[in-house]
Simulated scan of single mutants.
Amino acid sequence: MLVKTRYLIEGCILSREIRGLSERPIMNEKTVLTKELIEALQAFLITEVSVDRTLIDGKKFLPKEVIDPELDEMEESSDFTDLYLKSVQTYKRLFKNWQAGSKVEVAMIRLIVLPLVDKALEEASNILMLHHYCKKEDYLFHHAISIGLIGAYIASKMKCSRADVYQVAIGGCLADCGMAKLPPRLLTKTESLTVEDYEEIHNHPIFSYKMIKDSSIIKDSVKTAILEHHGRLDGTGYPKSLKTKPMNLFSKIIAVADVFHAMTSERTYRKKQSPFKVLEMILHDDFGKFDIEVVKTLLSSFANFSIGSRVKLNNGFIAEIIFIDASSQTRPVIKIQDSDHIINLGINRELYIEEIL
């Protein structure tokens, strides 16, 4: 649980390491706090830390104040879905604070997303079903947490270090924080956006970057990714003011995570599409816009978890995925429910998977 440093007592056990401006931690996870260590934390001007509920002597730690009860509940949760939904609601509350003028507390985002990343990587199939949880009314908040998780998963599969996986997660969650600086009417609009609306929305990566650029928690390459996550490899995308230069790996990962979740989620002005259809569109219709290795990493992972899944086709039929050809991963072989009819979607191009059930 997260508590103010002034409420710590001897025997408290750190549940997360404490970092300052240097790469090395000031104190490691599971450090047992003494009077001297507590004084050291105060000397470093550290105002809050995360500690276990139990003291070293086995007694319960009952601080006078828990900083964030929602985060406290999240630490106790063992169910991914429950943890994810609580993270979304906590992010929603933070976003409203940003709309009111509060600064982005990157440390708080880190506390929200890192336990969720750890849990998600243990049960990776959950990450690929995030679009099921998204409600269009709260799309923006689901989208932020989901970009972080999908991006972290891709980074992990691409053999990035765990530290960089965490960085991608934080960057993904904060990529759209600049939306808080847009007129609220744009965030709640139910009809199609106008050209003028899009012009305003295209400023949000710049706002996001300005809101986090002074953070010592985020690497410079991730800050760049936040600024250019709507940029494309072929020079399209936005903001247009960006200089022409190669996108770094974090930018490429967050860009794919962003568009994948956006297109597979229900929006107030647009229906969601199936992950298979979206990945096919990214691979073919948007060829040259996204890094092919990043897209293939996500596609391959999605395919591995999809065997045996029930799906709905665009003709209304319900089927089960029974085989996925490595050369045509977006168009698997399916078996129609309650029949022996098998269809290879790679050959029957007029059919496609509309939804994973």
Rank of each mutant, 00 (worst) to 15 (best):
A255I: 07
A255G: 15
V256A: 13
V256I: 15
V259E: 01
F260R: 14
H261E: 11
H261D: 10
H261Q: 12
S265T: 15
E266A: 00
E266H: 00
E266F: 00
E266T: 00
R267N: 03
T268D: 00
Y269Q: 05
Y269W: 12
K271D: 12
K271F: 13
K271G: 10
K272Y: 15
Q273G: 02
Q273E: 14
S274H: 10
S274I: 11
P275A: 08
F276C: 08
K277M: 08
K277Y: 07
L279S: 03
M281W: 11
M281D: 02
I282P: 00
L283G: 01
H284G: 00
D285W: 05
F287L: 10
G288N: 08
G288W: 00
G288L: 06
G288K: 02
K289H: 02
K289A: 06
K289I: 04
D291R: 15
D291V: 13
D291C: 11
I292L: 05
I292C: 01
V294M: 06
V295H: 10
K296A: 01
T297A: 13
L298R: 02
L298W: 01
L298P: 11
L298E: 03
L299R: 04
S300E: 09
S301W: 03
S301D: 14
A303W: 05
A303T: 06
A303S: 10
N304R: 09
N304S: 10
N304Q: 09
F305E: 07
F305P: 06
F305S: 14
F305Q: 13
I307K: 09
S309K: 13
R310G: 04
R310S: 11
V311D: 08
V311P: 11
K312Q: 07
K312F: 02
K312N: 12
L313H: 13
N314C: 06
N315V: 07
N315S: 01
N315E: 10
N315M: 09
F317A: 08
F317M: 07
F317K: 09
I318A: 10
A319I: 04
A319D: 03
A319H: 01
E320C: 06
E320N: 04
E320R: 06
E320V: 07
I322M: 09
I322G: 05
F323M: 12
F323L: 14
I324H: 03
I324P: 04
